[in-house]
């Protein structure tokens, strides 16, 4: 701070005067007004800017941008290929699934046919066996019926015999004279009724 005071004491030049004189910095190296408006520096800035821009432009257009473009295109190609391959595999998987489904459906139909055949066969056997059994049962029943009819007929004949004998005896016991022919007719008529 001491230098500042001495400089001021020595007669500080006003910033405005310096600016009018075309100076951009004061005696201490500080800025006067806007350094951006200092014409003294502009040529230098423009020169180095043009140099920088030309370098950047050539580096970008000759090396960097074609390289990045190629890398991106290559990646895009790889992705497209991979997607195509994936789609191929997916189609294969779908067709494999279809084939499997078809095979399964076929197997199912075949199984159904086998079941139906087996069922029909079993039913035929069963029907046959049933018919046989029915016939046997019918034969047995007919035999039985015949035996029963025989037994009944015998029984009826016996009963008639017994009734005739009893009637004769009863008539005789009552003191009547039993005519065998009349008694038989009367018993037969009663038995019918």
């Amino acid at each position: 701070m001491a230098t500042e005071t001495t400089a001021a004491a020595q007669g500080h030049v006003s910033p405005l005067a310096l600016e009018e004189a075309g100076k951009c910095v004061d005696t201490h190296g500080g800025a006067i007004g806007l350094p951006q408006l200092c014409g003294e520096w502009m040529g230098n800035q423009v020169f180095w800017l043009v140099v920088a821009l030309v370098i950047i432009f050539f580096v970008l257009s000759r090396i960097a941008l074609p390289r990045i473009g190629a890398v991106l295109a290559e990646r895009q190609g790889a992705i497209t290929n991979d997607i195509a391959a994936a789609e191929d595999l997916k189609a294969k998987a779908v067709s494999a699934e279809e084939a499997f489904n078809k095979a399964e459906a076929d197997a199912r139909t075949a199984a159904q046919a086998i079941i139906a055949d087996a069922k029909a066969e079993i039913k035929g056997d069963l029907d046959e066996a049933m018919a046989k059994a029915d016939a046997e049962i019918a034969a047995k029943a007919a035999e039985g019926e015949k035996a029963i009819a025989e037994i009944r007929n015998n029984a009826l004949a016996n009963v008639t015999e017994v009734a005739k004998a009893a009637t004769k005896d009863i008539v005789a016991a009552m003191g009547g004279k039993a005519d065998a022919k009349t008694v038989n007719a009367a018993v037969t008529a009663r038995m019918k009724g």
Binding site: M1, E4, C24, V25, G29, G30, A31, G33, L34, P35, Q36, C38, W41, N44, Q45
Partner: peptide, 15 residues
């Protein structure tokens, strides 16, 4: 004012 140094535009000086 003297203690605090205000030179906001000095950073734009071309040297």
């Amino acid at each position: 004012g003297a203690g605090l140094a205000f030179h906001p535009m000095d950073q734009f000086i071309v040297k």
